[in-house]
């Protein structure tokens, strides 16, 4: 029995699985300690998103276990996992386009009472949000939508965040802002973050560790501040 206090925020042990008979993720191990940021990099189609869907309970595991803060969660329905101090920013259809900004933010919380206080906190990071609560989320620009996704997941003050390719298609200035917000969140609240990325510079700028996923297996990992980290990752990512 692991001591819950010392248990990592997220621990993935020997996990395999995929869609139906197709095995996309093969015997993967991954640990995100409390308060740390781990970046998983890899080209498209290498199983990154699949791994997240398995952690969140949307896809069944063929093998292995997933533990969150020392508690085994695989087999639980997604909505129960989502209530375990975890915030998930999916890459596909991450927002309710036809709901307002305010409603999207509200859905980041489980009860409405704390809304004003949390909005104030999130508004520090993204000052445009409190002014535009009544706007439909689908009418925000691409960058604003990404910021709304992050803002929504910060509403509940999660202890761990799973973020899937948040930088995809973003302007450098927005990426810089998001990097700042995530680093600040970790510093202020000790939030652990699992970052799924293709943007090497962004990932290495805020992560403590990196791991490269190729054909559903981790082929390289190490500290993000290693001198050769970018070079090693790019070897796997390059065309």
């Amino acid at each position: 029995m692991t001591d819950a206090a010392k248990a990592p925020a997220l621990s993935v042990r020997g996990v395999s699985g995929g869609y139906g008979a197709a095995i996309v993720v093969k015997n993967v191990d991954l640990t995100v300690p409390e308060g740390r940021i781990v970046a998983v990099l890899g080209k498209n189609g290498m199983g990154k998103t699949t791994l997240l869907k398995m952690i969140m309970g949307f896809l069944p595991l063929h093998q292995g276990e997933v533990h969150l803060f020392g508690k085994r969660i695989n087999g639980e329905p997604p909505y129960l996992i989502a209530r375990r101090n975890i915030a998930f920013c999916p890459q596909e259809q991450p927002l309710f386009q036809d709901l307002t900004v305010g409603e999207n933010l509200r859905l980041g919380l489980f009860d409405d009472d704390a809304f004003e206080a949390k909005l104030e906190k999130v508004g520090v990071h993204f000052p445009f949000l409190p002014d535009r609560l009544r706007q439909r989320a689908g009418t925000l620009s691409g960058g604003e939508q990404k910021m709304l996704i992050v803002a929504r997941s910060l509403m509940a003050s999660p202890r761990i965040m799973l973020i899937d390719e948040i930088t995809e298609g973003l302007q450098p200035s927005v990426i810089e802002r998001l990097a700042h917000v995530l680093a600040e969140q970790r510093r202020a609240e000790g939030t652990a973050i699992l970052l799924i990325e293709q943007h090497v510079t962004f990932a290495l700028a805020i992560a403590d560790e990196y791991a490269v996923l190729n054909q559903g297996e981790f082929v390289d990992r190490g500290p993000a501040n290693a001198a050769d980290a970018a070079e090693r990752i790019n070897r796997h990512l390059s065309i």
């Binding site: 930088t167 450098p172 293709q198 943007h199 090497v200 510079t201 700028a205 790019n234 390059s238 065309i239």
Partner: peptide, 21 residues
């Protein structure tokens, strides 16, 4: 053409400095 392209490296792998516009 594509393998050698800096542009492709950028759109694809997102490398390069993200601070630069």
């Amino acid at each position: 053409d594509v393998v050698g392209s800096e542009l492709v490296q950028q759109v694809y792998a997102g490398s390069g400095k993200f601070g630069e516009r």
